[in-house]
């Protein structure tokens, strides 16, 4: 924190800081807060509106959108959960997320380690092949992917989202984990190797435990992606019983358009898991975004 206290006042203690200047700075601070609070309202108001609507009847929502609900009606949430199929969508999303996160994190971790710490013929080409995946939009692969899944007979099953989901998240995972492993001193492995450990042992007992911070960031990111991904399940999984929350919410919206309280409840349910995760692990989200974008 010593660093940030210095960062707090970059303009402090300049000889030019006269009394009049201070007054200007006070006004400046006022303007700063006005702008910041205006944006806070812009970012928060839609959420507050939706969340409070989840507890209202449609008539109440029509009357005054920002009035707090007169009473906490849980009916909308209960109905969205049961009649609106959100219980199924949630379970499906849990299955998809568990499989995609586990698969993509494990494979990216292994490959990221191999591509940074172990000798491999054509290592750079393999790496470039993976990293090109970061720049390729989903549209470049989606059509043949659909027919591939059809030919493999796994269209309209959980696998139709899980397998391509893992594959499409490998570039980001490998990129992140390789960057992380490269930051570890390779001599650590040499010590274990002279003690007779094989490469798997070095990875498992020395490197993997040290890579936990990188892994945690990766898990958070792959989870967020898998929970929110829309296009893949839209195209590959059309049966309602197999829909994840993201897609289910959209069809739910189409089905109950007139029932505003119900829609608000569905939208609220579908964002609860990521919002909770975000508020708990905020620093990981923000660090992960920054690391993903800035380090390479």
């Amino acid at each position: 924190m010593a660093v940030t206290s210095a960062a707090r006042e970059p303009f402090a203690s300049t000889p030019a800081a006269s009394r009049g200047f201070n007054l200007g700075r006070l006004a400046g601070r006022g303007v700063t807060y006005v702008i910041l609070i205006a944006f806070l309202v812009i970012f928060l108001l839609p959420f507050i509106w939706i969340w409070s609507s989840a507890f209202k009847t449609s008539q109440e929502i029509g009357r005054n959108p920002f009035a707090l609900p007169t009473e906490l009606r849980w009916e909308n949430l209960v109905e969205a959960w049961t009649v609106g199929h959100f219980s199924e969508y949630m379970l499906n999303s849990a299955i998809y997320c568990a499989a995609i996160v586990a698969g993509s994190v494990a494979l990216a971790c292994l490959a990221g380690y191999g591509l940074s710490m172990l000798p491999l013929p054509g290592r750079d080409s393999v790496l470039v092949l993976f990293l090109l995946g970061l720049t390729v939009p989903f549209q470049s692969v989606m059509i043949p992917m659909y027919y591939l899944l059809r030919d493999l007979n796994i269209l309209e099953t959980y696998w139709a989202f899980i397998l391509p989901g893992i594959a499409i998240r490998l570039p980001f995972g490998i990129f992140l984990m390789r960057g992380f492993f490269r930051g570890l001193p390779p001599e650590l492995g040499d010590a274990a190797r002279t003690d007779g450990a094989n490469e798997w042992g070095v990875f498992r007992q020395v490197m993997l435990p040290l890579s936990w911070p990188g892994l945690a960031t990766l898990i958070v990111f792959q989870f967020m992606w898998a929970w929110n991904e829309f296009a893949m399940p839209l195209i590959f999984v059309q049966r309602d019983e197999l829909r994840p929350v993201s897609l289910g919410t959209m069809f739910f919206f189409g089905r109950f358009t007139a029932d505003r309280g119900m829609i608000a409840a569905g939208v609220t349910i579908s964002m609860i898991p990521v919002i909770i995760l975000y508020l708990l692990l905020q620093r990981r989200f923000i660090e992960g975004i920054t690391a993903g974008a800035l380090k390479s």
Binding site: L110, A111, G114, L118, F130, S140, P144, L163, A167, I174
Partner: peptide
């Protein structure tokens, strides 16, 4: 062999579900 063992699983899945569809497009 160690490097191949670490990279191959990811590479196979990636070739099948990303690289192959890319060229097939």
């Amino acid at each position: 062999r160690a490097g191949i063992f670490f990279v191959l699983p990811a590479l196979i899945l990636y070739l099948l579900f990303m690289v192959y569809p890319f060229f097939r497009s």
